[in-house]
Design a protein around this nucleic acid. Structure first.
Lengths: 207, 207, 207, 207
DNA sequence: AATGAATGAGATTTCATTCAT
DNA sequence: CATGAATGAAATCTCATTCAT
């Protein structure tokens, strides 16, 4: 008969997810056992099952968290300035993210989730959303930019949004494979692309 | 069935790998049990273990196969014409691949392998190679193109190679998430990028 | 059933070992399956693996137990009286043991362990110790007896210790092979041997 | 369709048994797989199953061989001289055997067979015979010696036979456990025993 | 709410044996 | 008689989850 604050409860939940992320990032979704998470979280199996009703639910909660995080990343980048230069800010947000070693652990889990999405309906829904939502936000911003003339009228703004996201995801993978990986050179390439789709009257990117 | 030809043996091995790919693509690496592969291959557990000494080895053999396949894809695309337009041909090869539904199954397994590479040293080595080798081939081709003036002298050809591959990988993921996915629009975007890095005197892409 | 006493835990461990001994004695180390031990112990596979991390570890734990038991047998026999008659008491302890039907089960397992020692390093170490320790204890006691003149000065006390133990082990085997086996006649023979190595002034055996 | 000499057949059979002994001695009866024996014998599984219808049969054939060998050892020792000194010759035969490194391999298998006898009726029968037969031969020889006065009339000759065999078996075990093992000191002890049961008029052992 | 021992279905792998060639 | 690929029952061990305390 507990009677504990909601804050306490949320804290516990979060601790479990952090522990799970540490494990998943280290050993993968499937090689991580509940026992591993128990050890990492310093809790007991029973305690964890009070907060999540299955391992699957933990995975989904982590996916959800990622999804929210990425959504915010894009959203904030877009909101932070004029629509005309939104793409540039998104580009920076992405590349900064790649350069942020603290997020590396979570990106490793993202790769796991991409794989898991192929067989878990629950995870697939969330992973899809974490692609579709940024895509929509970005597309809308680009549409604004296009209306304002910052992006060429012939450009397929949805394709641009998808392509930029695709490049980001591909670079996330490469960072895992190449120990010398640096996001810098790709900034320039993305710039070239942005310039290539820039409208006549206003630059796609404002410096 | 004693003393069978090497050809027969190779055939069996290949059958097992095909069965495994079917299973892995459907259920993921870890939800697929050896029993599933047994059923799919119409063989017995013992028979499979005559060809591979563990499930891990099957996974690695599949990764190896993918790696060779992707290496050839790039290699052939590069060889098929002048260095100056190699990048265009590689772009086409990638996008054609995305459009090829028969390869879809295998690409699904690739996503699984990216995740698996995070915890299996064996798989990681192979997955890395299947990035590094195309990267090297492409970089060398681009270097030739650069020497011939088809690519601007200021361009970082290795970064271009990596970026194009990253975009390809990212699009492989999106194809899984978006049922309306079409590679077409991305062809144009890649063209824009190629033009942006083209040299003064010779076009980076030949039409 | 959380937070149980150490006593409870030790009890469970012991129960599992008892069940295993029953199985091993009946079917041998290798014909006994974990399933057999599960059935005999009325536990579940998982429960057993909470106490022992492999079948090998169960075997080793049993070997260890035997070793301790045999060490005590000798130790107590030696301690129970004057050094001069220690050998006689050890002889009695051995032959009483052979006559004790309750220990028969465990002796059967000992034979299994002798065989297992040939290929398992872990078991070999323990089996060796369960020979070397009684040997040392007995040799030391005999040395005392020799100093006191109860055993002839020319006698090789270590050889006597080894020989008596060898005879004991050989008789353990014969008890398995001969349904009419009786330890009695061997008591006399051992007596003859003891008398033969007795010193001039004091008898090796006190009656 | 074959038509091969019986000699050839026997040779093959023997080769298989030699290979099996090598394996059994190295890895134990149960850790040795038929594949191991196949490899060691340079034959094929099918070939081996032409000569023996199961692994069990190979084990029994080896046990049989041992049994014959040990029977001969005793038999020859007894036949080689007068009954009065038979025991001495058997003692020598045993201790020489222990000193013979070429037989070590087979003695290791004997230990395995002792364990196996506990659960295999077939092996048990043979192992029993390989104890009972020497026992009978030796007892009969001792009875002769007793009649001739070489052994005391009060002596239990069957017990003496059993005891000597027990000591031998026990020493076989110790040789496995003690790398410094030497049979020599035990010769003296056995002599003491023999003297102790010697009759008045004729020595139990002739020098 | 927390604990952690227990559960038991199910995963991977082994291996004695067979039989088509 | 020989071959060796195939068989498939069975062995060991794992691990998500439960529930009595």
């Amino acid at each position: 008969m507990p009677k504990v604050s909601q804050q306490y409860l949320d804290g516990r939940r979060s601790e479990i997810l952090d522990a799970a992320i540490a494990c998943f990032s280290r050993d993968g979704l499937h090689r991580t056992t509940m026992k591993d998470i128990v050890r990492e979280s310093q809790l007991s199996p029973g305690a964890i099952y009070n907060y999540f009703k299955s391992k699957e639910e933990i995975i989904e909660a982590i996916a959800e968290r990622r999804q929210e995080k990425e959504g915010e990343l894009i959203f904030e980048a877009i909101q932070r300035g004029p629509a005309a230069s939104a793409l540039t800010r998104v580009r920076d947000a992405f590349l900064d993210e790649l350069g942020n070693p603290k997020e590396r652990l979570r990106r490793r889990v993202s790769v796991q989730l991409w794989a898991e999405a192929q067989r878990s309906t629950g995870v697939r829904k969330i992973v899809r959303r974490s692609f579709e939502e940024p895509r929509k936000l970005l597309t809308e911003a680009l549409l604004d930019a296009q209306k304002s003339g910052a992006i060429a009228r012939w450009a397929d703004v949805d394709a641009i949004a998808c392509f930029v996201i695709a490049a980001f995801h591909g670079l996330v993978l490469q960072q895992e494979w190449d120990s010398d990986f640096s996001p810098e050179p790709h900034k320039l390439l993305l710039d070239l692309l942005l310039k290539a789709v820039a409208g006549k009257h206003q630059p796609a990117m404002a410096e």
